[in-house]
């Protein structure tokens, strides 16, 4: 069992906690600086409203703790708004330019597929189930970022070091594939730690 932090300031942190628990991990909801003090074996940046999340990260004083987790190089899974929080450039060419951690060399635009009536389900080029909800679109991928999966030619799942970032919502799909890939299941992570 590994302690996996989930940024829980706003958004769909509960479904991630459920998947992590089903894999035998201990989800830790992160809402205050002291929640980031214990050692974390990984971290999830969930979906939600990225502008709200980043604002709350700042006002609750979570930024240094999160930076430390990112610098530690533990496995990280970021979905939708979570990917926006970690991208280098967010809506860079608009009046809505937004601050972000810049941990993954990506440029993204928020709500890149349109409003909620344009939210959709489909499958990726590699057959992953894709649920897009007012999803961001990746418009530039840095040289150090690996494209793991695409949808109609566009990157939707990328990896940069220990960070896996998706524009879709694996936590809302059936199955635990991506969480298992990033964090392992409890037995596997216990043997890996020994």
């Amino acid at each position: 069992m590994a302690r996996i932090g989930i940024l829980a300031v706003q958004g769909a942190f509960a479904p991630h906690a459920q998947v992590l628990r089903s894999l035998g991990h201990e989800p830790v909801l992160l809402r205050a600086p002291e929640h980031l003090e214990g050692p974390l074996a990984g971290m999830v940046f969930p979906g939600g409203e990225s502008s709200v999340q980043i604002d709350l990260v700042a006002r609750l004083g979570l930024e240094p703790g999160i930076r430390a987790v990112l610098d530690a190089g533990v496995p990280v899974l970021a979905t939708c708004a979570g990917l926006i929080l970690l991208a280098r450039d967010v809506d860079a060419d608009s009046a809505h330019r937004q601050w972000s951690f810049g941990a993954v060399d990506l440029a993204v635009v928020r709500n890149g597929w349109g409003r909620q009536v344009d939210s959709f389900e489909d499958a990726s080029e590699q057959g992953r189930p894709l649920i897009f909800i007012r999803a961001p679109r990746i418009v530039r991928v840095g040289p150090a970022v690996e494209i793991v999966d695409r949808y109609r030619g566009e990157p939707v799942l990328v990896r940069a070091g220990a960070i896996m970032a998706a524009t879709f919502h694996p936590e809302l799909s059936e199955g635990d594939g991506l969480h298992r890939e990033v964090f392992g299941a409890a037995a596997a992570s216990a043997s890996a730690a020994q």
């Binding site: 409203e49 939210s119 649920i131």
Partner: peptide, 16 residues
């Protein structure tokens, strides 16, 4: 506009 995407937006608003 599937049931999943509709429910999904509701889930994204949690904690807000």
């Amino acid at each position: 506009s599937t049931n999943v995407t509709k429910l999904g937006l509701a889930q994204m608003l949690a904690g807000g």
